[in-house]
C-alpha cells in the first residue's frame, strides 16, 4: 500500500531519509538510520475492485504471488474491469527533461531513434511562443488504427487502452498510415538486446518482434499492479497526470486532482479534436509557464 500513501507522508519520508543520510556521511559514524515508517507487508490487506464493481479485502501477499506472469494475449484483449484510463499533459510544466522518454525506452527495450514517447518542439504560429509537447499514443475512443487493422492485431480494450498483439500483427503498416498522430513505430529489424526468456504479453510489449508494429500502451502491466505508468513517475516536473475517468481522478505521483476540475479550470483540450478520433489524452495549454523555453534542456537530456 506504500504507493497509496498521500503526498504529504511521502514528503516526510523523504525529509527523514535526507536527514539520516547526511548524518552518516558527514560524521562518518553510523549512529543508526532513522527507521522509515514502512511497515512489514505481512498480513496486510489490500482493497481491490472486483470485476463486478465491488470492493474486497485481499491479503497483500496473495496479490503479489498473482502478479508474477504478465497477462496472456487472450486476457490482454479484455481490459481491466471498471476502468477508463486517461492522461493529462500539462504543457505549462514541461521543460523537455526527457525523463519520460528515457524510462519508457528502458522499460520497453526501445532504441533512442524510435521511442514510443516524443517530446516535440511546437510553435503554433509565428507570433506565439514555442513550447514542448510530450506526445504518446492518444488511445483514441474512435481509433483509426484499430478500424483499419485487417487481422485485429491492434484492438481497443474496455478500459480504453489500445494495444497491439505482436504475435498477431502481419506487418502491413496500414495502422501507421491511418494514425494521424504518428504514434506508431515499426520493428524494421530484429529489436536489439531481446531477452528471449521473457514470455511475451501485449501488456508489456516485450520482447517486441521483428516485422510488427509497436506503440505507447499506457503500461497496463504496471496498472494491473495499481502502479502508475513509467513515464508518469519518471517526470521530475509533474507534467504528466494519469488516472481513471470513472474515478474522475488523475495523479502525477505527487498531487492528486479531480479530472473534471482540472480540465475545467485549466481549459483542457484534446489534440486535433476535429478529426473525431476522441483521444484519451488531454492537454492543458502552455500558459503561466514554470520554465522558460530553452532548447539546451533537450541536448542535456539526450546525452
Amino acid at each position: 500500500m506504500e504507493n497509496k500513501n498521500s503526498n504529504a507522508s511521502s514528503r516526510r519520508n523523504f525529509i527523514k531519509k535526507i536527514a539520516s543520510g547526511s548524518l552518516i556521511t558527514v560524521s562518518g559514524l553510523t549512529i543508526y538510520s532513522v527507521s522509515s515508517c514502512e511497515k512489514s507487508t505481512e498480513g496486510e490487506k489490500a482493497t481491490l475492485l472486483t470485476p463486478d464493481g465491488k470492493l474486497v479485502q485481499v491479503l497483500k501477499s496473495e496479490i503479489e504471488s498473482f502478479e508474477q506472469l504478465p497477462a496472456s494475449p487472450k486476457e490482454s484483449r479484455k481490459g481491466i474491469p471498471g476502468k477508463k484510463f486517461v492522461m493529462v499533459v500539462d504543457l505549462a510544466k514541461c521543460k523537455n527533461a526527457r525523463k519520460c522518454v528515457k524510462h519508457c525506452d528502458k522499460h520497453h527495450n526501445l532504441t533512442p531513434d524510435r521511442p514510443y514517447i516524443k517530446v516535440l518542439e511546437m510553435k503554433d504560429n509565428e507570433k506565439s511562443a514555442p513550447y514542448w509537447m510530450p506526445k504518446k499514443c492518444f488511445q483514441c475512443d474512435n481509433p483509426p488504427c484499430v478500424k483499419v487493422c485487417p487481422v485485429g492485431a491492434t484492438f481497443k480494450r474496455t478500459d480504453g487502452i489500445v494495444l497491439i498483439d505482436n504475435e498477431r500483427c502481419i506487418g502491413c503498416r496500414f495502422c501507421m498510415a491511418a494514425c494521424p498522430y504518428s504514434a506508431r513505430i515499426f520493428n524494421w529489424a530484429t529489436p536489439p538486446n531481446v531477452d528471449e526468456n521473457l514470455s511475451y504479453s501485449p501488456e508489456t510489449s516485450i520482447p517486441s518482434k521483428i516485422g510488427t508494429v509497436g506503440k505507447c500502451d499506457f503500461c497496463p502491466d504496471m496498472i494491473r499492479k495499481d502502479k502508475l505508468p513509467h513515464c508518469i513517475t519518471a517526470c521530475p516536473n509533474g507534467v504528466l497526470y494519469f488516472g481513471d475517468e470513472i474515478d474522475d481522478t488523475v495523479t502525477n505521483g505527487e498531487e492528486t486532482l479531480r479530472l473534471s476540475t482540472l480540465l475545467r479550470e485549466k481549459a483542457g483540450y484534446r489534440y486535433l479534436e476535429e478529426l473525431g478520433t476522441k483521444p484519451r489524452v488531454y492537454y492543458l495549454p502552455p500558459v503561466d509557464r514554470l520554465f522558460p523555453f530553452n532548447k539546451e534542456n533537450a541536448k542535456k537530456g539526450a546525452s
Binding site: 487493422c149 498477431r168 502481419i170 520493428n187
Partner: peptide, 17 residues
C-alpha cells in the same frame, strides 16, 4: 513485415478493414 502470417488474413480477418 510478416509474410509468414499471411494466413492470418483469412483466419482473423476483420470485415471492417
Amino acid at each position: 513485415g510478416r509474410p509468414d502470417r499471411f494466413i492470418y488474413v483469412f483466419k482473423f480477418g476483420r470485415i471492417q478493414s
